[in-house]
Design a protein around this nucleic acid. Structure first.
Lengths: 239, 239
DNA sequence: ACCTGAACACCGTTCAAGT
DNA sequence: ACCTGAACACCGTTCAAGT
């Protein structure tokens, strides 16, 4: 598709491999970047070794030189967006209070979930590298830095673990929900239409009564309010 | 595999179709039950139309008479376990207080997650029928009854919606985490070994220091403690 | 060194054909 | 009415072969 024409490829002189212009040499980073882009655009069901190859102007088999297989490719995709998260959350200026710190971390992860709604379920559900590396915080480097930050703000080791656990659970619940309704496999409108066609809500009076309120998008408030609750709860640890 | 021999099948008399004994006639329910059993045993990656057919002593194509395709089959699996949940939580004796009620509901869903750890991710991540039918509570009938129960215990419609939202988020975060470490695609021991072989934790001093505490299984306490917090928070609504 | 062609063992799904 | 055989358009992955 984005193949820039083997026929008209400019040959750049001297004997050796004529590195195609613009299309940089294939490599793990380029592959992962393209995979992320592809999933963002088409959903993870559509991602196929063969299609990803085609998108990069190469046969599927060429990818195996850089990733061990499809599963490892998906792990690589998770790794890729976690690196984005690291850049976004860990390289800015330091927070003044631990409350601000947790706020910044939470909003950073949320931005990832909203920015890549079709990738976030992978971050949330791929089998983790270590059993205690809890989704959606799936990067050793990120978690190390997170614990480090907590320590800087006066948390003991034990307290940090409690915070890490509560924090990851909180993010998983809120963001997986938000991402999966956003990056919906089905367009929301079509969804509703199909739904009311095939389901007779009249058998469910309570749902019928509350469905207007249930349909209201309240993710922003839910997130902010529960985050504040979480932070308050964590404050109790320190007293 | 469970095919009981077309060769030795007993013909039961009069002209019409000789319903095979023990192997009941193929039907949607039997297919879904087998699919659930199969995923519990082998994981959802292994579930294939062809293999499921074989397990039922039939070619894959025969399944299409009862389920529209693989996606619908997975939806059916979710439906199946949600019906189990309904039986488990909604047909017992009624709770005396709303706190007891929420406790019972929460523990019911947790029992589902622990009882079917390899199916729970489906319940948690399949695109929902309606955008406001929030995972992991993926049954109109169940949610209707849940809201009904809240009303019985004196919650207004608006309050019920708030409770439903907080409750679903809570369950999603806690149980998806617990289920995915339990129904692990990789055995936990093998996991740890592989992990320490391929990752040099010495670059992460904080993780190294805290890894013993991080490895501790604390799901029981985490669940009970946060559930209590959640219930307390919901209590504030009513004041 | 890096990519490809051909091949293998699988998929989901359809449809005409068998009983 | 219910199941199957054959076929189609795909997969992931391997490996010897090309340049």
């Amino acid at each position: 598709m984005t193949n820039d024409g083997a026929a008209g490829r400019p040959i750049t002189g001297s004997g050796h491999v004529p590195t195609p212009l613009s299309t940089r040499r294939l490599g793990r980073d380029q592959i992962l970047r393209e995979a992320v882009r592809f999933i963002d655009a088409n959903g993870r069901e559509q991602l196929t070794m063969r299609r990803l190859g085609a998108e990069l102007g190469v046969e599927a088999m060429a990818l195996y030189r850089y990733v061990h297989g499809r599963e490892q490719l998906l792990d690589g995709v998770v790794e890729y967006v976690m690196n984005e998260l690291y850049e976004a959350t860990m390289t800015g200026k330091v927070a003044e209070s631990w409350q601000e710190y947790l706020q910044a971390m939470a909003h950073g992860v949320r931005a990832l979930a909203i920015g890549h709604p079709r990738i976030f379920p992978l971050v949330a559900t791929r089998p983790p590298a270590a059993p205690w590396l809890r989704p959606p915080l799936r990067s050793l480097r990120w978690v190390e830095e997170f614990l480090e930050g907590l320590a800087r703000h006066g948390f003991t080791g034990h307290q940090s673990v409690v915070v890490y656990r509560a924090f990851s659970t909180f993010l998983l619940g809120h963001l997986l929900l938000e991402a999966s309704t956003q990056g919906g496999e089905v367009a929301p409108v079509e969804d509703d239409v199909e739904f009311f066609e095939t389901n007779d809500l009249s058998a469910y009076p309570r749902l019928l009564e509350l469905s207007p309120e249930l349909s209201k998008d309240a993710y922003d408030n839910e997130f902010e309010d529960s985050l504040e609750d979480l932070i308050n709860r964590m404050g109790v640890l320190r007293s």
